[in-house]
Nucleic acid binder design. Structure first.
Lengths: 377, 377
DNA sequence: GTTGATTTGTTCATTTTCTGAACTTAGTGT
DNA sequence: ACACTAAGTTCAGAAAATGAACAAATCAAC
C-alpha cells in the first residue's frame, strides 16, 4: 500500500511532529522533487494534512502533519476483567470506550471483540470505513510477527495464534503485543519518547514491566523476553518469587509486593499513598518498606543504564506519586549505582498514567503497524 | 562506491558464509535478475569469488564468497605498550604484525602508525594497493562516527579526533572503537557470532568489557556507554572502585581484582590458573575468592540476559580455563539468576583468546566499514 | 545414449523511484 | 515597485529493480 519511503516519512513525522516538505527531504536524504510527489500522494489519501504556514524570508513553508482522523484503531487490554476496549486515533486520543468480559478462550475473546466493535464504531460515522487495525495487549510473550502468543502464564496459553483468530472473526488486521512493550510503543508514538531513539519504559503496576526501544525500534529480544527486569535478582537469597527463584525485583518493588509487605507489618494499606502517608508520619516499618523497594527498583534501573545506556528512562506508574519517599529513594539509588561520570546524564522521566494505559498501548500497536509497518528495513 | 544493495549482500555473505546467487536473491528479497547484476559487478571488482559448485537436480549452483584477499586492513591496539599493530585480511587472518611504542599524544600515535605501515605492507606485494582501512582499539568512549574519542581515562583524552589525525597523516580511511566493542565486531565478522543477530560479548581481561549486537548491529548506546557491565553494582556497599562507587563487578570479578584479593590473602598468584590450582588443592581462601568472583560475574550476566534476552553470550578470556571452579560458578550463577523458564535457553559460549584479540578487533572495525559501511539503513 | 525434468543463472524490455535543473510561487526587505 | 529569497512543482533523464523469456548445466528414466 505505502512505499518504503512513505513509511519512513510517516515515521519521521511521528517522531518530530509537523515538518515542511523541504525539512523532510533533508531528513530523509531525498531530493525536493521526490518529496513533492510523496507528499502529494499522502495528502491525496488523507494521511497527511497541511497545518501552519511558517513565514520567513522567501516563500513560506507549510508544515505537514499526520491527519489524526485518517485512521482509527481498536485497542483491547486482556490485563483486566472486564477487559477494556477503546477506539483511538492517530494522536493517541480515545474516541470511544467499552468493555468486554475477559476469557481464556481465544475464540470467545475474538467473538467478544467482534460484538463490541459496532458499539465502539457507532460513535463516529466515518470510523467504520477508517478502522485500520486492532491491537491487543496481554501479559506474556509474543513472537516477532506480533501474531502469536508464545506463552502466557496469566491466560494459560502456549502458542496461541490470537491475532489470526481475531482477524478471521472480525476481518480486521490484528496485532498482539506484550503489555510493557505496548506501553513503550505508545510512548514512542504518542507520548514523551517520540523523538528519542534509545529509551526504556519501566511500567509500575501490580507487577513491574519494562521494554526497550533501540535505534528507534522496539527491541523484543531473542525469545521475546527483552525487558524482563521484574525477575532480575536484586536481593540475592531474598524472598521466594512466584517465578521459582529468589529475590527478584518483583518480590520487593512491585505495588503488590509493597502492599503485601505492609500488611505483613500490620500496616493499613490499599494503595501506595497509604504507606507514603504513614512513612511521612514517621512510621518506621513504612519507611523501611519504601526504602527497600525504592533501593531495589533504583538498583535495577541503574543496571539497565549501565547495560544499555539509554537516552531516556520513562517510569510510568498508576498509583500514588513519585514525590514521596519511594520516588526519592528510587532516584537516589539510581544515581548512587551508575558510573559517577554518567550520573544525571540519563534523564529519568516520571509519568503518572491512568488505567487506559494498556488499552491505549494496544491501540498504538495497531497504529504503529499502520504507520511504519511490521518490520522496517 | 558500493550501492546499498551490494552492502546488504556482503553483510549476508559475511553472516551466512558462501551462498549461491539464487539463495542470496531470496534472502535479500530481490529478483534473480537484479542479483545477477550485483554479483557480476562484485566479481569483476574482485570482492567476491566463486567457490564450490553444488550439484543437485537442475543446473548446479555456484557459491559465492568474499574474496579474503580483496582487501587488507591494519589494526592497532592502544591497550598495551608496546602497541601491537597487525595486517589482517577479510577472514580475520593475521598476515603480518609489528609493534609501536604507545603514546598519549595523538600526533605521535599517528606518526608511529605511518612509520609502521611499510614494514607491515612489505610482506605482500599487493597489500599496499589493497589496504582499505585502519582500525584502532582503545579503552574509552568513542562517538557513533567511530572517529572521535569522547573520553579515555587511560589515555587521558577528552574529545580527541584521533581518526582524522591518523587519516591525515597516513592518507588511509581510519576508524576507532572501544576495545570491547571492537572485539564484538570481530566476533560478528570473523568469529563465532557471525549468524547471531542479538548477542553480547563479555571480554575478561585485566578488566571486564562488554558490548552488545542488537538486530545485527553494534549497539553503542546514547553516550557510547552501552555494555559498561564492569561498573554494575553487584555487591551493594562493597569494596570501593576506582570509578568512585562501591561494589562494582570490576572490584570482584576482573582478573586484576582476583589477583589482588589473592595477594591480600597471602596467596601466590600471577595468573588465574594459580588460584584455580590452589582451589582444587582445597585452599579455602582460593575457593572463597573464586566463588565470590564467579557468582558476581554470573549474576551480572544473568541481569544482562534478563534485560536484553540475547541469543548468545560469548565470554572471551585471555587467561586460564573455564573448566575450573571459576567457570563452573559463573555458569551456575547465571542459571540460578535467570527466569527458570529461560534457564539454558541462552547459549553461553566460552572462548579462549590470545593477546591478538585487541589488534584483530581493531582491524575488524576497518573491515566492517569496508564491507557494510558506517551506518546501515 | 537420448529425452525430459529441473533448477541455476542471464538477458532485456519495462516499471518504479529518485535526481537535478529549470521553473513557479509567495512571501520579505528596501 | 523592485530585487531577493526560499519553498515547492514540474519534468526529462538516470538508476535500480521486476518479471518473463531464455540459455545452461545437470540428474533421472527409459
Amino acid at each position: 500500500m505505502l512505499t518504503s519511503s512513505q513509511r519512513q516519512l510517516l515515521r519521521v513525522i511521528s517522531e518530530s511532529g509537523p515538518l515542511s516538505r523541504t525539512e523532510m527531504a533533508n531528513i530523509l536524504g531525498l531530493s525536493k522533487g521526490a518529496m513533492s510527489g510523496l507528499a502529494r500522494d499522502l495528502l491525496d489519501r488523507g494521511v497527511l494534512h497541511e497545518t501552519e504556514t511558517i513565514y520567513g524570508q522567501g516563500r513560506p513553508s507549510i508544515r505537514l502533519d499526520l491527519h489524526p482522523e485518517c485512521a482509527f484503531f481498536v485497542g483491547v487490554s486482556l490485563l483486566e476483567d472486564p477487559a477494556p476496549m477503546i477506539l483511538g486515533d492517530l494522536n493517541g486520543g480515545i474516541i470511544a470506550r467499552c468493555a468486554m468480559p475477559l476469557s481464556r478462550d481465544p475464540e470467545v475473546i475474538a467473538n467478544a471483540i467482534a460484538e463490541g466493535l459496532p458499539a465502539l464504531l457507532g460513535s463516529r460515522p466515518d470510523a467504520k470505513e477508517k478502522l485500520s487495525g486492532i491491537g491487543v495487549a496481554l501479559s506474556g510473550f509474543v513472537d516477532e510477527t506480533q501474531a502469536n502468543c508464545v506463552k502466557s502464564t496469566l491466560l494459560g496459553w502456549q502458542d496461541v495464534p490470537l491475532a489470526r483468530i481475531i482477524r478471521e472473526r472480525t476481518g480486521i488486521e490484528t496485532f498482539i503485543e506484550n503489555d510493557a512493550k505496548a506501553v513503550a510503543v505508545s510512548e514512542k508514538l504518542f507520548g514523551s519518547a517520540r523523538e528519542v531513539q534509545n529509551f526504556s519504559v519501566v511500567s509500575l503496576g501490580d507487577g513491574i514491566g519494562c521494554a526497550h526501544f533501540i535505534e528507534g525500534r522496539l527491541y523484543r529480544g531473542n525469545h521475546g523476553g527483552a525487558g524482563e527486569i521484574a525477575h532480575c535478582t536484586i536481593e540475592p537469597g531474598g524472598a521466594p518469587c512466584r517465578c521459582g527463584k529468589r529475590g527478584c525485583l518483583d518480590t520487593v518493588a512491585s505495588m503488590k509486593a509493597i502492599k503485601e509487605m505492609s500488611r505483613a507489618e500490620g500496616l493499613e494499606c490499599t494503595s501506595l499513598s497509604d504507606i507514603e502517608h504513614q512513612a511521612s508520619a514517621g512510621n518506621a516499618a513504612a519507611i523501611r518498606i519504601l526504602h527497600r523497594a525504592g533501593s531495589a527498583l533504583g538498583l535495577a534501573i541503574a543496571h539497565l543504564i549501565q547495560m544499555n545506556d539509554p537516552g531516556l528512562i520513562l517510569i510510568t506508574h498508576l498509583e500514588g506519586s513519585f514525590d514521596g519517599l519511594f520516588g526519592t529513594v528510587v532516584q537516589q539509588a539510581v544515581e548512587m549505582n551508575v558510573l559517577p561520570r554518567y550520573a544525571g546524564q540519563t534523564p529519568i522521566r516520571i509519568k503518572r498514567v491512568d488505567s487506559d494505559i494498556w488499552a491505549r498501548g494496544a491501540a498504538s500497536i495497531a497504529a504503529h503497524n499502520f504507520l511504519i509497518g511490521p518490520n522496517v528495513n
